[in-house]
Computed example of a mutant assay.
Amino acid sequence: MSHVIEINNLVKRYNDLLALDHFNLTVEEGEILGLLGPNGSGKTTTINCILSLLTYDKGSIKVFGQEMKPNSYDLKKDIGVVMQDVAVFDELTVYENIDYFCGLYIKDKSLRKQYVEETIDFVELSDFRKFKPKKLSGGLLRRLNIACGIAHKPKLIFFDEPTVAVDPQSRNKILDGIKDLNKKGATIIYTSHYMEEIEQLCSRIIIMDKGKSIAAGTKEELKAMIHKTEKIQIEVFDLETNLLEEIKSLKYFENATYKNNVLNVSFKGGRNNLAHVMNVLSDHSGHLGRIYSEHPTLNDVFLEITGTELRDYA
């Protein structure tokens, strides 16, 4: 695979604030890269630098193997951007909006018409082509926003929080559409605070904080980095003390509590931990109730790596 994006030692300052601190990133052709980080971590600054919407103090950015500059229109025509804030014209219809944004890159009228029609079908807005944005629901408006960003069939697409404030049905439709775009060959960079979306979509994930990449890998690789790997909860009535001590002696054991007939056990490694706990409890004379095992989520990874304190930025 070839590098669609190459960022080397990128530095960006806002006066005394170091927004990007020698940041490095490569994006491979055909992948969906999840870009995560707390508020103020540098995600948006990174994207704006890639798009050459911001100047930077040091480093280099290449897109499709070429240096990215403000006037790199030959590169920008192959890039689509779908930002969190909906950016369409209220006075234009659905069709007219998509046609306008597509026309920024596709000058041939017949080809543009073909692309617009294909995009309307893709986002399933055929029944709303004559509607103006103010008459659309939140989910339909999001799909229009996406259509305007992808109508020119870009090879590289940035999605910044595209499912904010939409219902679950619309969210699923949007995520399915992004998967389809990737299957058709688009390389995608996706940012979201919805960790389940990142897990569902992304083949690789970068976690940023304080302008740096602090963790990178597949979701499985990231989950293997953190301390806790499995949490087990079992309803156990009248658990004998000796059995609790035996559970505490299991390999990879980290912590256990027993309160109100509920046993909580966490492990920091290993496999089949639940089976080992149940083997200990097989000699228990009391009654066992609900059994629940939870492996770490991407949200667990994110909080352990970046911390749990609130981030307040002006």
Score class of each variant (00 low, 15 high):
4 V>F: 13
6 E>Q: 08
6 E>D: 10
7 I>V: 15
9 N>S: 11
10 L>S: 12
11 V>W: 07
20 L>P: 01
23 F>A: 08
24 N>M: 02
26 T>R: 14
26 T>G: 06
29 E>R: 07
31 E>M: 11
45 T>R: 12
48 N>V: 00
55 T>E: 15
69 K>Q: 15
80 G>M: 08
81 V>D: 05
86 V>I: 14
89 F>H: 14
96 E>A: 10
99 D>V: 00
100 Y>W: 08
121 D>P: 05
122 F>N: 12
123 V>A: 07
125 L>P: 01
130 K>L: 12
135 K>L: 03
141 L>H: 06
141 L>K: 15
143 R>H: 08
145 N>E: 08
147 A>I: 01
150 I>W: 00
151 A>I: 03
156 L>T: 03
172 N>C: 14
179 K>T: 06
179 K>E: 09
180 D>Q: 14
193 H>A: 03
193 H>W: 01
195 M>R: 00
202 C>S: 00
203 S>I: 02
206 I>H: 05
209 D>M: 02
215 A>L: 04
218 T>P: 00
220 E>S: 09
222 L>A: 03
222 L>R: 01
224 A>E: 15
229 T>M: 04
232 I>E: 09
232 I>R: 11
235 E>P: 02
242 N>W: 13
246 E>Y: 11
246 E>R: 14
255 N>E: 10
261 N>M: 11
266 S>L: 11
276 H>Q: 14
279 N>I: 04
279 N>K: 10
280 V>A: 05
286 G>F: 13
